[in-house]
Design a protein around this nucleic acid. Structure first.
Lengths: 339, 339
DNA sequence: TTGTAGGCGTTATCAG
DNA sequence: CTGATAACGCCTACAA
């Protein structure tokens, strides 16, 4: 028996037409579900299609009607971070959930935080996708902002820079972080530190601002701020730094659950009991909040729903419908064991 | 100022040709780097290309030369598992690393373990990709196996079912698991349990076999086997079950680090010290091995390199080169704190 | 070295 | 309701 694999060229519209004894146009109508076709013709064409296992060629279709039926998922992050943070998993989950029943497919574009590669740019601009979903956005890549000039784009999280004409779904990070911090204040804590996220991302900046706001309102010292980058390792590093600087701290507001997990392990390593000695509040309410050593009290943001909202927004745009440019979703405290 | 975004149709070969005062063929030659073109013409064409910001239309190109320059990454897993297990992150990391400098783009197809959706099938068979990379494979989806009849396909992990003509990269899971188990035996442990992976996946089956083999060779009882599914939750569940059944167990070989992390948290919850009371050996040596409560001693498999190997194999196939059908990579013990 | 012409598989516009 | 007949943007013999 031969190990060669026979690969025949797939059947075309033309062949189906011949088999069914009609014209290409008619087959095309059937394939695209046009109502204007007689029952018997429809039957014979359908039979021919099944028979030949005909599947329309996308390239040809795209060329003819200028639609690719593909959506780009642009991720301006290193692979490790993208896969390492459950927050992204939730977003993507939401996106795929709404795209699944649609006719669109998702293509993955892993870019780097500093900006997409030449190849990615060409891909995005080369008419390969009808629209794009950008999850996470760092300052410094103007390209993604300009991308909106070429096709509908929806951002996950407020994009940096010029925001008019930008579509995005987000939460009110300042208010949410202020809420998380206030929770600690209401607990009676007074030496409250914070570990912030990447300083080149809106979520990083805004959550730090929220902490600052609540601290000031309560008349508490705002010296204990350490800058992380949303990774677990950075959470651990910042916690060490803060503990060294202020052994007396009694609480910490952390801008992501993943960083909080890192912080928690350092706290335990340093023999602080949680929450008695140090109370910890995280952010996201991602799986990372409940899979660590201590169940995290955290600020919940509806990540899956945010992914769904992004996809819905883009689908609407693709249908040519008017859309609200901004969708700010609700957050809430989820109280568990860490505070 | 209008909020409408002006989207002009992108320039075509034709327009570039007009701008440069040559024919379409000549521009095509320049774009595709043909040597047969005079320096001055090349210069003017290049100028026109830059000038108009010309980017070739992929659909048209695909239609003309029957190549899409796209590769499908097929993931027969639920989104949560795909994103939840760092093992996949490493594989994808390796894949993207070698595809990055190539001309191919990656499209993501999240299927379900029981088989891809109608849409995914049509996508894969509709001439949208030149080849496919399948990471993880469950029994029950014959489609993926048949996919090899339509295009080059490389599997991550030995595919189930008929394997001739199948290309894949893997490790020797039986031998690797036997090694991990033997390590525990050599430590002097005698009541060694095992938590296996999904029973419908080769990796799940083979690693259980490896444990069995070493146990039998050592003349130890093989009654302590619990069936997990590679998730952390299942690791915890199995550990509880095993502990209930055999409170005297003194070691456990777990088929993945993520499950081992789940097992570890249960062991600590039950006041077993690790490794004194119970030694734990994991599998993968993924980030999950070092990000938990206890640094895991584990069987290392070169996940990133496996991803790279998969991509290289597929690229070779796409170039029409002969390839070894099977690439079995090396594993080794990595000793840390858990055993 | 360069241009001409035909074709890739579909859709869309018109007649009939 | 159905069938020609042009596009769609690019590649590739083939001819000049």
């Amino acid at each position: 028996m031969s190990t060669e694999q026979s690969r025949r060229t797939p059947p075309t519209l033309e062949e189906v037409a011949a088999a069914a004894g009609v014209s290409r146009s008619t087959v095309s109508r059937v394939v695209n579900g046009s109502s204007r076709v007689s029952p018997e013709v429809l039957a014979s064409v359908t039979a021919a299609i099944d028979d030949l296992r005909y599947i329309p060629n996308r390239a040809a279709r795209s060329l003819a009607n200028r639609q690719t039926m593909a959506i780009a998922l642009v991720v301006p992050e290193e692979t490790t971070r993208f896969f390492g943070d459950p927050y992204f998993a939730s977003i993507v989950h939401g996106i795929t959930r709404v795209l699944e029943p649609s006719d669109y497919v998702l293509t993955l574009q892993l870019a780097s935080p500093s900006g997409p590669s030449e190849k990615t740019v060409r891909y995005l601009l080369g008419g390969n996708v009808d629209g794009a979903l950008v999850v996470s956005h760092h300052s410094g890549d103007e390209f993604l902002s300009r991308l909106s000039n070429s096709m509908p784009v929806v951002f996950g999280g407020r994009p940096l820079g010029n925001q008019r004409d930008r579509y995005f779904v987000d939460v009110d990070n300042v208010a949410a972080a202020a809420m998380g911090t206030r929770y600690l204040i209401d607990l009676g804590r007074t030496r409250i530190a914070s570990i912030s996220g990447a300083p080149d991302m809106p979520a990083g900046i805004d959550r730090a601002d929220g902490w600052l706001r609540s601290m000031k309102e309560a008349g508490l010292a705002t010296d204990l701020l350490a800058h992380g980058d949303f990774s677990m390792a950075s959470g651990a590093r910042c916690m060490r730094e803060l503990l060294d600087r202020a052994p007396d701290l009694d609480a910490v507001f952390v801008a992501s659950d993943l960083m909080a997990a890192g912080a928690v392990s350092v706290l335990r390593e340093r023999r602080r009991t949680i929450p008695a000695d140090v109370a910890v509040v995280g952010f996201d309410d991602s799986p990372a909040a409940t899979s660590g050593e201590v169940e995290l009290t955290t600020v919940h943001q509806p990540s899956v729903e945010m992914g769904e909202a992004m996809a819905h927004m883009l689908l609407g745009l693709l249908r040519g419908e008017e859309q609200e440019r901004v969708n700010i979703m609700q957050t809430r405290m989820v109280v568990r064991a860490s505070a």
